[in-house]
Amino acid sequence: MPPSDVHHEHTPVVPIIEPVPHISVRGLTMAYGDNIVMRDLDFEIRRGEIFVIMGGSGCGKSTLLRHLVGLQQPAAGAVFFNGENFTAATEARRDVMRHDFGVMYQSGALWTSLTLAENVALPLREHTQLSTREIDEIVRYKLALVGLAGFEEYYPAQISGGMTKRASLARSMALDPDVLFLDEPGAGLDPVTSRLLDNLILQIRDSLGATIVVVTHELQNIFAVADRALFLDIATRTIGALGHPVELRDNSPNPRVRHFLSRSD
């Protein structure tokens, strides 16, 4: 029998958020053909913070994340990592810069023909010179970190949705990335599992010091993890607000932001 899920309890730690921008987005316009999704996005993500991108369904949150990791080219504007223009970089240079990224996809996106251990090991095999033993030990540690010790030889089809998300998180952390991008981490999970994942995200930030960018529309996740949140306003097709979610809920001049965060009618 596989071992039961491990519950993580988060002990609050004062996060180290440096006041320098880790990621800068300058004048970013996202479009599908002639249809502009968002225009003139300007914001910065500080090193070590948990930055939430939020907004209603279909506002372009996941599209923005795809632009941040270079899976889509912007119609205008650019994304900078540590001051270096990621958008204008060559594909080879981008590949090098992506070594500092970890991405957890909405669906998990685990490679179904590989076991969980092989999924987590693949980034290590591709981008390090570690021996098989070292990779194996790191893989076991990363899977244990997300409560999946003992599931190394399982295939993605054999585990639950919550475990898929955690395995995906383990894979995204394989190379100890500087930036973790999490696309809808709580989507499709029950409240308890979702809360466990929130705790896990906080622990990872506190222990690894990574900058974490979370895309979500779930208020529970937003209030649980966000140091700052960016609201994408579908009505104006640009940034609606930027700040701490509690502050935005109580004091934002934008009624749509207050409405979104208070979930009132």
Binding site: R98, H99, S107, G108, T112, L122
Partner: peptide, 16 residues
């Protein structure tokens, strides 16, 4: 199917 489940996007971001 790998396109639908974003497995190919995951490879691309990994630099593979």
């Amino acid at each position: 199917s790998m396109q639908v489940s974003e497995e190919i996007a995951a490879l691309r971001v990994l630099g593979v």
